[in-house]
């Protein structure tokens, strides 16, 4: 009946991965690092994988999650220069 726009655990997880971008952890490991229940975290991680914030390698308990850094591109097109 009630759902979050901004799921606290999801945000916590995202910020954790941004702070520690080279983290490679299983669900269990992450639950330990974040001090959260693995059950609660599982759903959140699924969500983050589905929005491509995280990548999952492997399956089951040994699946490893890692952060996908957003793509950064500089744009400096000539037309843009002229237009500006």
């Amino acid at each position: 009946m009630v759902s979050f726009h901004l799921h606290p655990l999801q945000v916590e997880c995202t910020l954790f991965f941004q702070d520690n971008p080279y983290t490679y952890e299983t669900l269990k490991g992450l639950a330990m690092r974040l001090g959260r229940n693995a059950e609660d975290l599982a759903a959140v991680l699924d969500q983050l994988v589905s929005t491509m914030v995280l990548e999952m390698n492997g399956t089951g308990d040994s699946a490893i999650y890692r952060y996908i850094q957003p793509v950064t591109i500089d744009l400096q097109k000539e037309e843009l220069c002229e237009d500006m």
Partner: peptide
């Protein structure tokens, strides 16, 4: 006139085209 684009979920062509449009 330089812009930076930070993006998740788009390929580089899409970023280029769309980013340019937004810029």
């Amino acid at each position: 006139s330089k812009v930076d684009i930070v993006s998740r979920g788009l390929n580089s062509k899409e970023i280029n085209d769309y980013g340019y449009e937004v810029a």
